[in-house]
């Protein structure tokens, strides 16, 4: 574990150093290339703004209007049937929708139930093993101007469901139920 976190901490500085040294060795005009590549970054950030404003406004209305709670009430029986504990259901539903809300919920669950409880461990694994599907789709499709997402949302959400069930099963196997 210690080695893994050392790799994680040292990874970025080493990577940057390596790219610069290798670039210089290959006689790439590093500074000019850096600036050229960086210019693109500004363009992309500006391009995504309308996509993200649309998505985040929709999501915050969805939450403020109580529609999210209604959806949770609707989905909860199905989630319980799949063996997902009641305490985790709101987190499981919010995880693909809002990254910050999910992070808030995870810390709340860990604070209330304790980090080494079943719920604490399960919320930790759940938070770590899934991503904010809606955000990823909005940013990536927005950046290239794609408006028809095809099956991407369905695939992403179903994969999230697989991830949630996998988290429950793996945590139960590793640490036992409750």
């Amino acid at each position: 574990m210690y080695i893994l976190s050392m790799i994680s901490l040292g990874f970025i500085p080493i990577l940057i150093g390596f790219i610069l040294i290798y670039g210089t060795y290959k006689q790439v005009p590093t500074y000019e290339s850096f600036v050229e590549g960086g210019k693109e970054g500004i363009k992309i950030a500006i391009t995504i703004i309308p996509f993200l404003v649309g998505m985040l406004v929709a999501i915050s209305i969805f939450r403020a209007s109580g529609a999210l709670e209604a959806l949770m009430r609707l989905i909860r029986p199905g989630m319980n049937y799949l063996g997902i504990p009641a305490e985790i259901v709101p987190l499981a539903i919010i995880r693909p929708i809002s990254g910050t809300a999910a992070l808030g919920m995870t810390s709340d669950l860990i604070a209330v139930h304790g980090p080494d409880s079943y719920i604490g461990r399960l919320s930790s694994v759940l938070q770590g093993s899934t991503d904010t599907t809606f955000y990823v789709l909005t940013v990536y499709f927005g950046a290239v101007g794609i408006k028809k997402m095809g099956d991407a949302l369905k695939v992403g959400l179903l994969a999230d469901l697989v991830g949630i069930i996998a988290a429950v099963v793996v945590v139960t196997i590793f640490f036992g139920a409750k």
């Binding site: 790219i19 290798y22 790439v28 290339s33 850096f34 050229e36 590549g37 960086g38 210019k39 500004i42």
Partner: peptide, 13 residues
């Protein structure tokens, strides 16, 4: 800006 700058170098090298 930062990472796309770095990646441009990685790409050209």
């Amino acid at each position: 800006v930062f990472w796309l700058g770095m990646m441009r170098i990685a790409q050209e090298s």
